[in-house]
């Protein structure tokens, strides 16, 4: 059944704009953005939990909107602004969301944290003072098994308050 591995690999040269840095890469066209970020660009801050679009762990921002990097091909996002967790802080200064997550214990094992931070960043850029329920709606594609979500909601509220 699994004969596709014997097929020829189509490779493409792509210029990806990741965290404001343009990088040219020669990539197998069937490699997902998740794999390319982690394996070809050493941006291992983007995690993965299922690779099937079911858990939200691999969320990145594409032109500011949260998408799942496990379901995106780099060729589909060439020329668009890709933001990963590594691009959230400004230099050594944490983004207010990162600061709030750290202060309030919103990251336990921390594995879902990058994806949730990026979903929250996208939310706050379109809705500066979301209600608690709006935060829930916006983050509903990101599963977390550690926190019970309470501290994450608190942290997004805290950051939103500080940012506006």
């Amino acid at each position: 059944m699994k004969q596709e591995v014997l097929r020829e690999v189509e490779r493409v040269v792509l210029a990806l704009d990741v965290n404001g840095e343009r990088t040219e890469l020669l990539l197998p066209v069937h490699k997902t953005l998740l794999e390319v970020l982690r394996e070809d660009m050493q941006l291992t801050g983007t995690k993965h939990g299922c690779e099937l679009g079911e858990c939200g762990t691999c969320t990145v921002l594409i032109d500011g909107r949260a998408e799942l990097s496990c379901l995106v091909l780099p060729i589909q996002v060439e020329g668009r602004a890709i933001t990963t967790i590594e691009g959230m802080a400004r230099g050594a200064e944490l983004h207010p969301l990162q600061q709030a997550f750290a202060e309030l214990g919103a990251a336990q094992c921390g594995y879902c944290t990058p994806g949730i931070l990026l979903s929250a960043k996208s939310l706050l850029e379109t809705n500066a003072r979301p209600s608690r329920d709006e935060i829930r709606e916006a983050l509903a594609g990101n599963l977390c098994r550690c926190t019970g979500y309470s501290k994450i909601l608190d942290a997004v509220e805290l950051a939103a308050g500080r940012m506006s």
Partner: peptide
């Protein structure tokens, strides 16, 4: 990691 099979990609 679950990965995609190899394919050609056409962009009409």
């Amino acid at each position: 990691m679950l990965r995609l099979p190899r394919f050609k990609y056409l962009r009409p």
